[in-house]
């Protein structure tokens, strides 16, 4: 009986294997590339597990002073853009949800439709005019284009689903709007804020297009730096893969650890019919 049941499930398990393997194999291959010497990376047929492991590919990346600068740039840009987005986006999501002004969410939708590059032409000229090029400010400010809509979007759907009764009780007790928000709504919304924080920081961390236009030599973020390794330096696959993996590793770990929150946040607008 048990065997028959297991056999009937075989096609399902096979299908699961089929759809999951492209993702798994890709990252396994990425890891393999990053741990091989050039001889092994240039071998045909390709080698998956090398006899000698090239840990030095990683050492090289970390020893490069420039890489640490780019890492710091990425941290500052993502950190500042996410913090600022939470600061203005969480109250905005609250206000929009309570005013039932869901039409305001259309702005967020249009922001999603607009190609990132079309923000960049005027902002590029503005930053030049203000003399900000060469600092991290242009990138921090343009990253708000990504982070603010995400935070507002997630928070609207979160606040819409939290009950009003507690807030009404607080109003009866004489609390003003701000106190209600600060002491009643905000603590309840903490899981929603975590979701917004995770998504905003991932999409800011991953962003490439703003950096490629606005970053100078010293102000590159990691995605731009890795791209430049491909285009300008002599291409050696090992160190390049190691750098690529280091850039994306924080995101991959976060994806596995905070999977539930990420899934909830990504589908919040979509599944509700936004």
């Amino acid at each position: 009986m048990n065997l028959a049941a297991a056999l009937r499930r075989l096609p399902l398990l096979f299908a699961v294997l089929m759809i999951v393997s492209p993702a798994i194999l890709f990252f396994v291959w990425m890891l393999s590339l990053s741990l091989k010497y050039e001889i092994d990376n240039g071998a045909y047929p390709p080698i998956l597990i090398p006899e000698r492991v090239a840990w030095e590919n990683y050492a090289k990346v970390f020893q490069s002073a420039a890489f640490l600068t780019f890492f710091r740039n990425s941290l500052i840009v993502t950190g500042a853009a996410t913090a600022a987005a939470l600061l203005v986006g969480v109250p905005a999501g609250y206000g929009i949800a309570r005013m039932k002004a869901t039409r305001a969410a259309i702005v967020v939708l249009i922001a999603r439709m607009t190609p990132g590059l079309s923000y960049l032409i005027p902002l590029f000229l503005l930053f030049q005019w203000l003399g900000l090029m060469g600092t991290l400010w242009p990138q921090i400010i343009t990253h708000l284009v990504i982070t603010v809509p995400i935070v507002i979007w997630v928070m609207i759907s979160y606040f819409e689903s939290t009950p009003m009764e507690l807030e009404e009780a607080a109003v009866i007790d004489g609390a003003n709007r701000w106190q209600v928000f600060r002491h009643v709504a905000l603590p309840i919304a903490r899981p929603g804020i975590v979701v917004a924080l995770i998504l905003a920081s991932i999409f800011s961390w991953n962003n490439f297009v703003f950096g490629v236009v606005l970053a100078g030599r010293e102000t590159r973020t990691l995605p731009v730096a890795v791209y430049n390794m491909l285009s300008f330096e002599q291409v050696s696959w090992g160190p390049l893969s190691a750098a690529a993996l280091i850039v994306t590793l924080p995101v991959l770990l976060l994806t596995i650890l905070a999977q539930r929150q990420i899934v909830a946040g990504l589908t919040a607008g979509a599944v509700k019919g936004g």
Binding site: V226, T248, L252, T255, I262
Partner: peptide, 19 residues
């Protein structure tokens, strides 16, 4: 497995483009 399955869309696009 669902977590592994969604990794491609969360990973840094430029990094995966290189590979």
């Amino acid at each position: 497995l669902r977590g592994l399955f969604i990794m491609p869309m969360m990973a840094t696009p430029v990094a995966i483009a290189l590979v």
